[in-house]
Design a protein around this nucleic acid. Structure first.
Lengths: 230, 230
DNA sequence: GCAATAGTGTCTTTAAGACAGTATTGG
DNA sequence: CCAATACTGTCTTAAAGACACTATTGC
């Protein structure tokens, strides 16, 4: 490595970009273009520009990776990782960011370098410490659904209570009681507000459409059954 | 800066080490030995060794900064920060770690380079982004008291329910009802287990001594009143 | 009317909030 | 007995869990 100074490390940002498609939690992955691990599956990465803040760099990297015209609706720092010691690139540190894009924006060009893949299908398949990062990201996401309005970010501008419930069910891999879920969501002041519009489908009673409210925290939190594991 | 390669950044670990002394939350601070900001108050830092993992480096840095003979009872990664752009050292990234040492271990040599200072007295006084890091650390700490057994880490090997309650009151800057607190702690299975010993003081009824149990999560969480902000 | 989806109401149980009184020690 | 600290018990209220039924649409 060209920098002998112990204070310098090779640095990059790892991007964990989630969306929901086909009723499954999906993550954007790509293939490494250069050695080491050339051709292997990995998370999109980006470098830190000279004048960039960390969130700025993450946002730019996400726009580049997805080809979206707008920045993601949610972006948060996940954690930092030091690459496994066997890495031939020397001392490597990365900071991972977690982002969410709504299903509607998840369309990707057919010849895009990156692709959406169901999380369950890439578990354990990523190069370097991508698997650990992805696991941490999923856990963070599941935790944050409990006490924030993050689930609404997966939905489009407007959504039904049923669609919102599907987000919880997909991310938590569990089924929720529609009656109790409804009571909880509508009973949390400011979480969602009705738009007055209805969503019609081929059959069945039309559903009331809602949009995000001003509340960012769900107090008391939404509870999931299997949260007692250590 | 000597590294022209855009992939390399100057890197360090910032250490936020908490303890409770004199019924106040205190943090270990030191003074910068070299420019820039020489002499100013700051958090202890350390570098990443060639073969070290991030938690290893943090643990080593904490032992060096505190002079303790044992590693901290709790250590977790907080977040990564990019130093403010005006920094003459160029592109600087740091990862902050949060650690807790019990009051008993908090004794520091009189001529140690670092010193314990009440958090309230150093708020806004730290160099670089130390203030932001400290604020984040306090918030993380307050949040984690709600649904983990982290408060027990501030206590010694054994402690009374009253001592444990003081930890919550000090960190949350709030007073708790002793009766309801007792019911909650003793009603959470596996959180604390009685040792059979008693703690005697000059006067008053002796208190039953407990030690940490096996439960690491408090479910349902301990609630604090003023958690509805944002 | 039927299939399909959306929505609501009640009973029970758990646990927090808000209280006052009893118990044990040393002096 | 008194001061000081530790401990416990009850009533009320909020909210989750576990249920079945009604409502609205297209065909």
């Amino acid at each position: 490595m060209s920098c002998a100074d112990e204070l310098y490390v090779r640095f990059a940002l790892d991007l964990v970009i989630f969306t929901i498609r086909d009723d499954r939690l999906q993550v954007l992955v790509t293939h490494r273009a250069e050695p080491p691990a050339s051709g292997e599956l990995c998370l999109p990465t980006t470098a830190l520009g000279p004048e960039e803040d960390l969130p700025e760099a993450a946002q730019r990297g996400i726009v580049e990776a997805t080809g979206l015209d707008s920045p993601p609706r949610h972006l948060e720092q996940l954690a930092s990782y030091r690459a496994p010691h066997g890495d031939p690139r020397g001392r490597v540190v990365s900071v991972a960011y977690l982002a969410i894009v709504p299903e509607a924006a998840a369309a990707l060009g057919p010849d895009a370098p990156a692709a959406w893949r169901p999380v369950v299908s890439v578990r354990g398949e990523l190069a370097f410490d991508g698997n650990r990062i992805l696991d941490d990201a999923v856990e963070r996401l599941q935790d944050k659904l409990e006490d924030t309005d993050l689930a609404t970010v997966f939905c489009g501008e407007t959504f039904t209570i049923g669609e919102l419930r599907r987000v919880y069910e997909v991310v938590w891999e569990d089924s929720l009681d529609p009656r109790n879920f409804s009571r909880k969501v509508l009973g949390t002041t400011g979480l969602v507000v009705p738009t007055g519009q209805l969503r019609r489908q081929e059959t069945g009673r039309p559903a009331v459409l809602y949009q995000r409210g001003t509340a960012r925290k769900v107090i008391p939190p939404m509870l999931r059954a299997g949260a007692a594991d250590n």
